[in-house]
């Protein structure tokens, strides 16, 4: 199946932007990633099983493009991240601290943390999106959570699954 691109843009552009920003840490680059992702969908001949399949595909492409931006020598000239974060209207200091702490995580943990907590993807779905094993996803999630806990302390609840 194929869904009209106009519908997909309405449904997913914001979430893709937030995911791309999580990786690029730059709003203009993140917008470019979103645009390129939808162009990739438009030019692809890929058929999909259902809407969830399309959604996962869009996130996979967006994550890869955002990673490519990070590796690229040329970045869009933009205000420093600290200045950008300062002007975001957080409701509380706790929110801004969590935001900055997540952006301070190593990239490979940030992506998994974001897909898990913001996009509600399961371990299996994240493994399929990132092309890594479920074991790797669990490891990255566990280490990312530990790093968040170390910095945020009580502001981050201990939600690590422990082996019985």
């Amino acid at each position: 199946m194929r869904t009209p691109i106009e519908w997909l843009i309405n449904a997913y552009q914001t979430n893709l932007f937030v995911a791309a920003f999580n990786i690029c840490k730059n709003a203009e680059d993140a917008k470019d990633v979103v645009q390129d992702t939808f162009i990739a969908y438009h030019t692809s001949k890929q058929q999909f099983h259902d809407e969830q399949h399309i959604r996962a595909w869009l996130f996979r492409v967006a994550v890869n493009k955002a990673k490519d931006v990070n590796k690229s020598f040329w970045r869009r000239n933009q205000m420093p991240l600290e200045d950008y974060v300062e002007q975001l209207p957080f409701e509380s200091k706790e929110d801004s601290t969590l935001f900055e702490t997540v952006l301070g995580l190593p990239e490979k943990y940030r992506i998994v943390i974001h897909l898990f907590y913001y996009e509600d993807y399961s371990i299996r779905e994240i493994a399929q999106i990132l092309h890594i094993s479920e074991s790797n996803v669990k490891t990255r999630l566990s280490r990312g959570r530990k790093l968040l806990k170390d910095v945020l302390k009580e502001a981050w609840a201990d939600d690590e699954l422990r082996k019985k």
């Binding site: 957080f90 929110d95 907590y117 502001a155 939600d159």
Partner: peptide, 14 residues
């Protein structure tokens, strides 16, 4: 709880 906190923080960006 963590999911809720996370979404609240990043919804600002959205």
């Amino acid at each position: 709880k963590n999911r809720e906190r996370y979404k609240k923080a990043f919804d600002v960006l959205a």
